[in-house]
Computed example of a mutant assay.
Amino acid sequence: MAKKSRTKSRSQSAQQTAPGEVGPRQPCPCGSGKRYKACHGAAGGAASVFVARPFEGMPSECDVIAMRELVPAATAPLTLKDHPDKTVVLCSLLPMAAPAMVRDSGEIWLGLQVQHNYGDPARDLGAILTAALDAEPGIVGITEAPGEGPRLQDLISDESLQVTVHEGFDYWIADVAEDDRAALAASLDQANDHATPTARLTSVPAAYWTDVGSKEHLRWVMPEPEDQLLDALARLHAAGRDVLVDGSRFVGMFRAHGLLAPVWDLPVGTGPEALEDPAEAFAAALAEALADESPLTTEERAARSGLANRQVTLR
């Protein structure tokens, strides 16, 4: 009887989790791999509050998420509100996954793909950028949660980012003297070997083609609220209107930093150019579906349920 009572008590406790709330035994949404009660749900277990959509309000939010989670090598210049003449470059990845580097030229490079995770990467970036403004050339980082302070979107202008996708990481040594490049050759070659070919589409925002060898993908970070986007995608899926090119297949979605990134499998040899017109047409069809406020049909509800089950949370 005692065992049954404890089991019942645990079951009732689990059921008391409110919709949208993370249960203590569930994985922490920060992506640490720990249970919530041992990470951001523990007193002192994580040093800062987890922010589900940290880059909200930042210009080109979807591209920033793609650079952090999906794109191997990309850069985008930033304009600072209080230091408009300061050269700052947002980078997908820096050597040794450094949070930031102050170059000999005085340029500041901010890295998005880093090893630390304090719950709010936008606040981490704000703290690192603030520290880099007064730092000597070299690596700049943080070893603990930054606490209160400006977030990255508080420090930069509202201009849309101009993202450049690189074939590899040669941008790491673009400002390095020729005689000093030999010492970096081995680490650069190793990084380049792991950089999958990637291209950003020009016809729609934040859509990235990539070739992983055995197949190609289109991964497209979208800004719409999750429920509305799922409804719209379900309408298109049920109608068979989510096929981009012959042989392509809409396979599911990543959830990253509060937004969804639908993913298509593509036939080998598709390439990014062949996706420009189909992606633009799909964006128009998606806008139409988003504007449709009628109840979902039985087929659309079934499609929505299937799509919801094909989501993978990155962070």
Rank of each mutant, 00 (worst) to 15 (best):
S32Y: 10
K86E: 00
A18L: 15
E224A: 15
D246I: 05
Y118M: 03
R235P: 04
A239I: 07
V71F: 04
P54Y: 05
V263Q: 12
P84D: 07
D104Q: 15
S9T: 12
V64F: 01
Q190K: 11
K37L: 09
V88G: 01
K37G: 03
G269V: 04
V89Y: 00
L314K: 08
V71S: 03
Y208S: 02
P137F: 02
S187F: 12
I173L: 13
D134M: 07
D227R: 13
G20Y: 12
Y36T: 05
L184V: 00
P29V: 04
T87N: 05
F55R: 04
A285I: 00
L70K: 03
A287V: 00
C30F: 06
E276T: 06
N309I: 06
G126N: 09
R249A: 05
G23C: 10
F282A: 03
A308Q: 13
E159D: 15
V245A: 03
D231T: 05
I108G: 01
T196K: 14
E280G: 14
S294E: 15
A122E: 10
R315Y: 13
A135G: 09
E293W: 04
S294Y: 03
A195W: 09
P262E: 03
A186F: 15
S214K: 14
K34V: 00
E178F: 10
V163Y: 08
Q16C: 02
I65S: 07
P262A: 06
T198E: 02
P262R: 05
V204F: 06
A207D: 05
E224H: 15
R255M: 13
D189Q: 14
D134W: 03
A234K: 02
D63G: 07
A289E: 06
A232E: 08
H257T: 00
Q311V: 15
A303M: 12
D246W: 02
L290W: 04
L70C: 06
P95Y: 05
E61A: 13
C39V: 07
P27E: 04
L129R: 07
G126T: 09
A274P: 00
V268F: 09
D154L: 07
A177E: 14
A274F: 03
A38W: 07
A174E: 11
T17R: 15
D154S: 09
A261T: 08
D104N: 15
A43G: 12
P225E: 09
F169I: 06
D242R: 02
V268A: 15
Q113N: 11
D277C: 02
P19T: 12
G126Y: 08
G31E: 01
G147S: 08
R123L: 14
A182P: 00
D179Y: 04
D227H: 12
Q162I: 09
F250H: 14
M1G: 14
A279T: 10
